[in-house]
Computed example of a mutant assay.
Amino acid sequence: MNACTMIGIAGGSGSGKSTFTNRIKRAFGDQVTLIYHDNYYRSNDGVPLEIRQKENYDHPDAFETDLLIRHLKALRRGESVSCPVYDFSLHNRTENSIELRPSRIILVEGILVLENPELRSLFDIKIYVEADADERIIRRIIRDVSERGRHVEDISEQYLTTVKPMHYLYVEPTKAMADIVINSGRNDVAFDLMKTKIQSLLERD
């Protein structure tokens, strides 16, 4: 297999990074492997739900990033890996896993994928998607209510106690480490540029 290119896509919760990432995935299909850092949240087995609900999920320690790093290195070697699956409604990993196969282009998306130096060093291209704070919280509320079964009161409390402070402490500083900063997941110019870049990488011998 030819050498793969790894692309890290970071940004605050609700910034539009998933929108941008999914647009790339739809454009290239199976030619691209997509990995969500969120699936590598640590297992909370044995922890009561009421306590799991109040954990700080925006701190780097909430993720099993060392496992993600091992998986990315395996994919770069041409090996398949079993990616964990996280259930946001239960605040815990499920018993299921997803087989990820190596490909020429590997996208890794998550709020903190540029925070860890070892993880960051694996990326050939680093992207940060930013958005106004008001837009991010509105998108988060809509997503968490419609997709994750959350209540607005709980979302607001979590945002003020952990999401917002962790964003300014750990997420936003990684913008300076990105090769490309885009102002929206729906930025057509940025998408077209990345699409052209990925196409050129896929066409290499």
Rank of each mutant, 00 (worst) to 15 (best):
R26T: 12
R26A: 09
R26L: 08
R26C: 01
A27V: 04
A27N: 08
A27I: 06
A27E: 14
A27K: 13
F28G: 05
F28Y: 05
F28A: 03
G29A: 15
G29L: 11
D30Q: 14
D30T: 15
D30W: 11
Q31G: 06
Q31A: 10
V32Q: 03
L34H: 11
L34F: 02
L34R: 00
I35M: 00
I35K: 02
I35D: 03
Y36V: 05
Y36C: 09
Y36T: 11
Y36H: 14
Y36E: 14
H37P: 04
H37N: 10
H37K: 11
D38V: 12
D38C: 11
D38A: 09
D38F: 11
N39G: 09
N39W: 06
N39F: 06
Y40Q: 12
Y40W: 12
Y41A: 08
Y41D: 10
Y41P: 01
R42G: 02
S43M: 03
S43Q: 09
S43K: 12
S43F: 00
N44T: 05
N44H: 04
N44V: 00
N44G: 04
D45N: 13
D45L: 09
D45H: 10
G46P: 04
G46A: 08
G46Y: 08
V47A: 04
V47W: 01
V47I: 15
V47M: 12
P48R: 07
P48K: 07
P48L: 07
L49M: 14
L49K: 15
L49Q: 14
E50N: 15
E50L: 11
I51P: 03
I51H: 09
R52E: 08
Q53I: 06
Q53E: 12
Q53A: 12
Q53C: 11
K54C: 07
K54R: 15
E55W: 10
E55S: 13
E55D: 08
E55F: 15
E55Q: 14
E55P: 02
E55A: 13
E55R: 14
N56F: 08
N56R: 11
N56Y: 07
N56L: 13
